[in-house]
Structure formats: C-alpha cells, structure tokens
Simulated assay, not measured.
Amino acid sequence: MGTFTILLGGDLVRTPRLDRQIEGSRVIAADAGIGHARMLGLMPELWVGDFDSVPPNLPEDLAAVPQKIFPAEKDMTDGELAIAEALARGATKLVLAGAFGGKRADHAFLHLALSVRLADAGTTVLLTSGAQEGVPVLPGKKADFDYADGTLFSVLGFSDLAGLTVSGAKWPLDRVEVAFGSSLTISNEVKGRLEIALERGRALLLAHPYPLPES
C-alpha cells in the first residue's frame, strides 16, 4: 500500500471528498495532528514529533499509538519528520491532511513548498484542509482535475512560470509567462474539465472544491 495520510496540525474539516481521498491509506500523525484522527475515524500506525503540542484529554487508544520522539531543538518540523517516516515505509502518494491554516503560517508555507519538492522527486502529493486542497504542478506534465463548474482555484507560482496553459476555466490561458509574485493566476473558476500544463517553472494548484455528486 503506497498511500499515506499525514495528519498535520492545521485546520481540518471532514467531507465526503476527503473520506474518499484517505480511504484505505496508512496513517502517520505529526504531533498535534493526532487530534484529527478521531474525527476522521483513523488509527495512526505511528505518532512522531517533539510532543510539545499534544491535544488534551486524548482518548486512551490514540494515546497508546506507537511514538517516535524527537528533541524540541531539531532540524526538521514534526510534519517533515512524519513525511520522512512515510517515505521510509514505501509511500508513493501522500495526503497531507491539515496542511493549511492553524497557528503557524510558516508551517503552512513549508507544506506548500515541500509538496512541490516531493512531487518533483516523484511522489504524488495532495494537500487538504477538507475545505481547500492543493496539488503541485510540474513542467512537462499535463494535470487534469475533477472539480465541478464554479469551483474557485488559483495557480500559485514558486518561480517564474513559462508556457502556462489553463483550459476548462472561466479565464483560460495559452502558454503565457507569469512573473514570480504576479497575481495573474489568482481567483479563477472551473468551467468544464480543468487542465493545466506548464513548460518551465514550479507551481501549485490551490482549489476550493464544490461538493461533487456521489458516484
């Protein structure tokens, strides 16, 4: 089984779409992220971190999850440590649940940037809060998405972008160049089958998916 859900400490809401995305996955919790396990009906196989933000009144079964404890003064965040453990256990796909929001904007930024690096190395990555989700966009690989019409999305550039094509959108783009830090690709809407292609650069799709009909 190559799919791992990493429970992170950011905001998370349970939705039918999220349930489908994490179904059958193995689970590793990063410090406070274990607080999401009960809501999602998950039992982590491992709990890692420095344990400086353990949720209070944790149920006994979750408190008994095997732990890997690290010192508070370390070179990696708890989330990156959890991801490293998943990769060491054979992960080929990661669902980073709780990757946005929360009290630490620096951690949220790290999850965005780290997901792009992981995707560049060959790991499939989905970041999600239940209400919004992110998917890395890499050069030379056309990506298509199952979002319903009207879904709000943005393409966040982590560098200058060249040859960016966006189809199936209210405002399509055809092989445009986008300077790093430009707002050109912020706040678009899905109209049809969303497809994104990129010739050069690194980017991330950030979407607010509408509920989709149950199949």
Rank of each mutant, 00 (worst) to 15 (best):
Val116Asp: 12
Val135Pro: 02
Pro56Gln: 08
His111Lys: 10
Gly130Tyr: 07
Thr151Ile: 08
Glu45Cys: 08
Leu156Ala: 13
Pro56Cys: 06
Thr123Met: 07
Leu156Arg: 14
Asp50Ala: 12
Val135Ser: 07
Trp47Ile: 07
Ala64Cys: 05
Leu96Thr: 03
Ser53Asp: 05
Phe153Ile: 01
Leu152Asn: 11
Ala148Trp: 12
Leu87Gly: 02
Val54Met: 15
Ala119Asn: 08
Lys142Asn: 06
Ser53Thr: 11
Asp144Met: 12
Lys74Gln: 03
Thr77Pro: 04
Leu161Val: 12
Asp61Glu: 14
Val125Ser: 05
Asp160Gln: 02
Ala131Thr: 02
Phe70Tyr: 12
Leu126Val: 14
Ala84Thr: 03
Ala72Thr: 00
His107Phe: 00
Leu114Arg: 14
Thr124His: 13
Phe145Lys: 10
Thr77Ser: 08
Thr77Arg: 05
Ala105Gln: 09
Ala91Asn: 00
Gly102Arg: 06
Pro44Gly: 11
Thr77Glu: 02
Ala131Phe: 13
Glu45Val: 10
Pro44Met: 14
Pro59Phe: 11
Ser159Ile: 13
Val135Trp: 14
Asn57His: 14
Phe70Trp: 09
Gly134Ser: 14
Gly150Asp: 05
Gly140Lys: 10
Leu161Asn: 03
Gln132Ser: 13
Thr128Arg: 11
Ala119Trp: 07
Ala99Met: 02
Thr92Gly: 06
Leu81Met: 05
Thr128Asn: 11
Tyr147Thr: 01
Leu164Glu: 03
Lys103Gln: 09
Asp50Val: 00
Ala91Thr: 01
Gly122Leu: 04
Gly90His: 04
Gly101Leu: 08
Thr128Pro: 11
Val48Pro: 04
Val116Tyr: 07
Gly157Tyr: 12
Pro59Arg: 09
Ser53Phe: 12
Leu152Gln: 11
Ala99Thr: 01
Phe109Ile: 15
Arg117Met: 08
Lys68Asp: 03
Thr151Gln: 15
Leu112Cys: 13
Lys103Ile: 10
Val155Pro: 06
Arg104Ser: 02
Leu164Arg: 04
Val54Pro: 14
Ala84Arg: 08
Ala121Ser: 11
Ser115Pro: 11
Gln132Glu: 15
Asp144His: 15
Leu81Thr: 01
Arg104Asn: 04
Gly130Arg: 08
Lys68Cys: 05
Leu161Ala: 08
Glu45Lys: 11
Ala88Lys: 03
Thr77Ile: 00
Asp120Ile: 04
Ala84Gln: 07
Gly130Asp: 13
Thr128Lys: 09
Ala82Lys: 01
Leu42Ile: 08
Ala131His: 12
Gly79Phe: 01
Ala82Thr: 02
Lys93Tyr: 05
Tyr147Trp: 10
Asp149Ser: 11
Val54Gly: 13
Gly102Val: 01
Thr77Leu: 03
Gly98Ile: 00
Ala72Leu: 06
Thr123Leu: 09
Pro55Phe: 14
Phe153Cys: 09
Leu161Asp: 04
Pro139Phe: 15
Asp75Ser: 02
Leu118His: 12
Ala72Gly: 06
Leu81Cys: 02
Met76Gly: 00
Ala97Ile: 00
Ala99Tyr: 02
Asp160Ala: 09
Val65Ala: 06
Ile69Arg: 15
Arg104Phe: 00
Leu138Asn: 06
Gly157Trp: 12
Glu80Ala: 04
Asp75Pro: 02
Val125Thr: 10
Ala131Val: 01
Val135Thr: 15
Asp160Trp: 14
Glu80Gln: 06
Pro56Trp: 13
Lys141Phe: 13
Lys141Thr: 15
Val65Ile: 09
Leu164His: 06
Asp149Glu: 12
Glu85Met: 05
Leu46Asp: 04
Ala99Cys: 02
